[in-house]
Structures are given as structure tokens and as C-alpha cells.
Design a protein around this nucleic acid. Sequence first.
DNA 1: ATACAACTTCAAGCCAACTTGAAGTCAACA
DNA 2: TGTTGACTTCAAGTTGGCTTGAAGTTGTAT
Lengths: 130, 130
Amino acid sequence: MIDISELSRRSGFPASKLRYYEEIGLIRSSGRKGLKRLYEEEVTVRLALISLGQSAGFPLAEIRALIGAEGRPALDRAALAQKADALDDQIKQLTVLRDGIRHIMTCSAESHLDCPRFRRIMRVALKRRT
Amino acid sequence: MIDISELSRRSGFPASKLRYYEEIGLIRSSGRKGLKRLYEEEVTVRLALISLGQSAGFPLAEIRALIGAEGRPALDRAALAQKADALDDQIKQLTVLRDGIRHIMTCSAESHLDCPRFRRIMRVALKRRT
DNA sequence: ATACAACTTCAAGCCAACTTGAAGTCAACA
DNA sequence: TGTTGACTTCAAGTTGGCTTGAAGTTGTAT
């Protein structure tokens, strides 16, 4: 069992954030020593998952739904499958964006609007918004 | 030159959002007809870029810096190169996350903490936060 | 000429995800 | 025993990205 400053140190999350996450049920402390929260070390794994989910653009509420509010992950298979598919989409998009950026950097066309490569990129971008 | 409702229709963005984007200098109108804004059709391309950037998790201010506040994209090569690299990172991460999710769905280990595959995923996740 | 729908501005409100600040509590050490 | 310093709670504030609402202004259709 570690205290909040230790958890903060290990995770890189400020204590305020950890309290906030606990408040909204993303993590939990497993007791107190006086007033002070004590956490199980496993919480660091949860935090890593959370940060991963966030970098994927998931809102905290969704992350909570995916990894479970309680101690043990409550894994809803259908939800997970859906997320994985969503990630596939997102990865595709980001790849297009990245390639687009790299292309723009070296493209010689007068205006990007005239560049077939750029137009293709835009087509993909617009498709998504449908 | 098209009006705001037409631009809204074409882009799928509500008019309020378009006015907001104009206010913060992400897009611009090229005149008025009475009070009503008129936009060049090219703005749709800008909007596509914006939406692409957003789905990549870039804040609007950064998107503005990348695509330029003024009519023509002001492309800072160094900034673009950096973004492309950042996207590479993000794509890698999302791939790990996606594979992780798909794995969890089928993993038979008692706790994911015991699963070597899962632990590897967490290692990658934690590496990023460094 | 007048009514109407579609625009306009501007201020305020809203949600997520936090941070900050004030005031209190506690254990550990001198 | 008392003072320090790291914790605590709770309320309020902040930022980003918008939306909503009230009140005013138009071009067009009748």
C-alpha cells in the first residue's frame, strides 16, 4: 500500500488528478492511514490504462465503462470489439493525415488544391465526416 | 461564394460552429451580402482539414498554426515534420491499444496482470508517459 | 408594403477535465 | 507538548470547444 505522493511519483499524475479520478470512480483507494489515502500498487496499471485510453481520445466516462469502475475490470466484450473497430478507423485516419502532412512538406504543386494526392487525402477526410 | 447554411450543409458543421471558427480565425468569410456572410468554396477543404486534425486530437490553436490563419496555408516545415513524427507515435500507441483490447477479449489468464501479453502492452503504455 | 425565414451580434451557459485555494487534520519529530 | 508539513475536504475557478437565447436586420415572396 502506497500513499498518494508515492503514487503520484510513480505515475507522474499530480495528486489533485488522482483525487479527482477517485472521486469519479476511475480508481480507488484501499484504506486510510489517518486521513491519508492508501493505494494498492496495482493502481499504477489502471492509471497506465487510463492514460492509454485518453491518448486514444476516449472520454473518462467511456474509459471507466471499459475498464470497470470496481476493482476488477468489467469487460464488456461487445463494447471492446466496438472500440477495437473504432481504433482501426482512427488509425487509418491518422495514417492518412500523417502521410498527407509528409506529402505537403514536399509537394511542388502551386496550390494543394491542384495536387491529386492532396485531393485524395481530402476525400478520405471528408468521407469520415459522413 | 456560398452562404453559411450552404456551407453548413456541405460540411456538416452547424452554423454556430462555423461562426465560432471564424471568430477564432480558423476560417474566414470573404464578404457579406447584407449582413450575411459569404464564403469561398475552398473553405470546405479547410474544414475537412480541421476535422481531420481534430480527430487526430490536435487542439484548434495548433491546427490553426499548422494550416495558417490567413487565406493560404502557412506551412511551417519544421512544425509539420514534428507533427508527422508525433502522429507516428500516436499511431503506434493506438495500435498497441487496439491489439491489447482484442487480446483481452480472448485472453484466458486469471487476471490480466498475470498475462505476459498484457504486461507487454502496459510496458508500452507506461513508456509513453515517461 | 409587409411579413417571414434566415440570417446577424453578443452574452451567457454548458460539459469535460482538471487546478487552485482556504481551512482543517494528523503523525512524527524536536 | 507543540509546531511543522504533508495530507485532507469542499467550493470555486479555468480552459477548450462549443451551443443557446434574446433581440435586431435583412432579401425575397406575396
